[in-house]
Amino acid sequence: MGKKRLTMRRKESIYGYIFVMPWIIGFLAFTAGPLVFSFMASFTNYNITSQMDFVGVDNYQRLFTEDSLFWTSLWNTLYFVAFSVPLTTIGAILLSALLNQDIPGIRFFRTLYYLPAVLSGVGVYLLWMQLLDPGTGMVNLILSWFNIDGPNWLFDPDWTKPSLILMKMWSVGGSMLLYLASMQGVSKSLYEAAEIDGANTWKQFRHITIPMITPVIFFDVVTSLIGGFQIFQEAYVMSSNGEGGPANSLLFYNLYMWRQAFENFNMGYAMAMSWILFVIVFVLTLINLKLAPRWVHYEGEEK
């Protein structure tokens, strides 16, 4: 009896490996190699085409002690992540709570708010550059109806990052869909019981909905934190000449790394930068995972 179960289990694990095989092969062939290579090359003066001499920790040392743009880019990225991740998460939760109502035409609204997630990439950035134009843009036009003198958005270093965060808020539709799906899965009986006990809508939201969707919140926070650190395209497209201006206010970490790698051909230096970013994101994700048991509630889990 025991022997048979073992073979079953072994068979299943073999099936398991077969199913993950394409991913493992892909990982080994296309990711693991370059990963190891970039780590080794981060200790060299690799320039892609002609040189690759070992320079020890020189790249890392220069980054931390000599390179002012490294710190600028790191600060810009941290600023963006610190505001965009909480704001988009809260925005998405509130939006999905609104769209979780049972009213006529709700499908129409859901489609409407999801649309920005379908439109993505450069087209959207160009559209926002027009919307945010200080003189002729729609955003400042609408603000002027309320007698608000709109800021210079993408031309004022104090407003460039808020502009991008605003744009990110507009496209929360993608994570909204995750929250909505999760909210629909919350059992109606919980709400009914709470209503009988006299809980109002806010209390139901606070004590039933939020705890029930914490796994999705956790997932969203982790992925958008990682994604936030990788911001590149927005700054590349929305600053003039892709330089990260005005006054380096949009010089994000990945943009600076890209410039070192492909414009100055300091590939070894750029690889060192990528490993520093990796360590930062890795540590933050570890902290996230450590904190998770304190607030993430899995149904059926024993406390």
Binding site: P157, G244, G245, P246, A247, N248, R259
Partner: peptide, 15 residues
């Protein structure tokens, strides 16, 4: 990449 050490300062001047 010398321009990235000039343009931001001049931009600050115009601002």
């Amino acid at each position: 990449d010398f321009t990235s050490y000039i343009n931001p300062n001049v931009e600050e001047f115009f601002l």
